[in-house]
Amino acid sequence: MTNSEVARQQQHYRAVRERLVRAGSRGGRSAAMAELHAEVKELTAENAAKARRIATLETDLADAEARLLAQAKALLTGRRVAETDAEPTDDRPAIDTIVADVLADFPGVSWEDVISVRRERRLVKPRHACMRAVYEKRPDLSLPRIGRIFRRDHTTVLAVVKSTSEAPADISD
């Protein structure tokens, strides 16, 4: 490579750097980027709010379906269903009440943590305890329904339930 070619390349690189510096100092491009970043933040917040609303609606739907199922069973057995039976009784507490009772034993863990996709070690026991409690206290809910409440597959709920029921008893001498 000759000195004239090197000099030509260096001049070309200087010209390119100068154009890039001028483009950044004009502010047009950075202002557009800032506007896009603000719009992305706004859309992210909207999506998070919608996700929370969907989770609430899914929980409400699960409770309503469980009440309908209980009423249908009662009608099939010939028992008359009273208006007060439509609401969960002491035998069938609401799902959020069950979960709140379980999460009281796990400080720092919220409902959002339990239904999140995160697989942190600190979240596994509370998540499993919540699933197990809902399964035990609400026998009117199916495994797929409980799975939908916790945003998991029904086989995950089944594994949680089996793991506790099949666990060997602690034998102390």
Rank of each mutant, 00 (worst) to 15 (best):
G24I: 04
H37L: 10
K137D: 06
D90R: 08
A82D: 13
A74Q: 09
A49W: 09
P93H: 07
A15P: 00
D105H: 10
A104Q: 12
V16L: 10
R53S: 04
G108S: 03
L57S: 03
A133G: 11
R145F: 06
L43C: 11
E42S: 12
E83D: 08
R19I: 13
P139A: 07
D85V: 06
A74K: 07
P93V: 02
V16M: 05
K125L: 10
I54D: 15
A64F: 04
V160M: 01
R121T: 04
A15T: 12
Q71V: 10
I115R: 07
L141I: 01
T97H: 12
R14Y: 13
D173F: 14
V114T: 01
A7G: 03
V99Q: 01
V124M: 02
S172N: 13
R79Y: 11
T89H: 01
K125S: 06
L75P: 01
S25P: 00
D60K: 15
T2A: 05
K137E: 07
K73D: 11
F150Y: 10
S165R: 15
A32Q: 08
H37S: 14
D63Q: 12
E83M: 08
L36M: 15
Y135K: 06
L57A: 04
A167M: 08
A169C: 11
E5Y: 08
L143Y: 12
T89I: 03
R67N: 02
A15Q: 12
K137F: 00
R17T: 08
F106G: 01
R121K: 10
R80C: 09
R17N: 11
E136K: 15
H37V: 04
P88M: 09
L68K: 07
P168R: 14
E83V: 04
T56A: 06
V157N: 05
T44A: 12
V161F: 08
R138H: 02
K73M: 07
C130T: 00
A169W: 07
V81P: 00
S116A: 04
E18L: 14
A31Y: 03
E166R: 15
E166K: 15
E136H: 12
A31C: 03
I98D: 04
D153Q: 08
T164G: 05
E83K: 08
S142W: 04
L75N: 03
P126L: 11
L69Y: 09
E112R: 13
A66L: 02
P93A: 08
S4H: 10
V40I: 14
R17A: 13
A70G: 09
R145E: 13
Q11S: 13
K125P: 01
T56K: 08
T97E: 15
R17K: 09
K162S: 04
M33D: 14
R22M: 07
L76Y: 12
V109Y: 00
R22F: 03
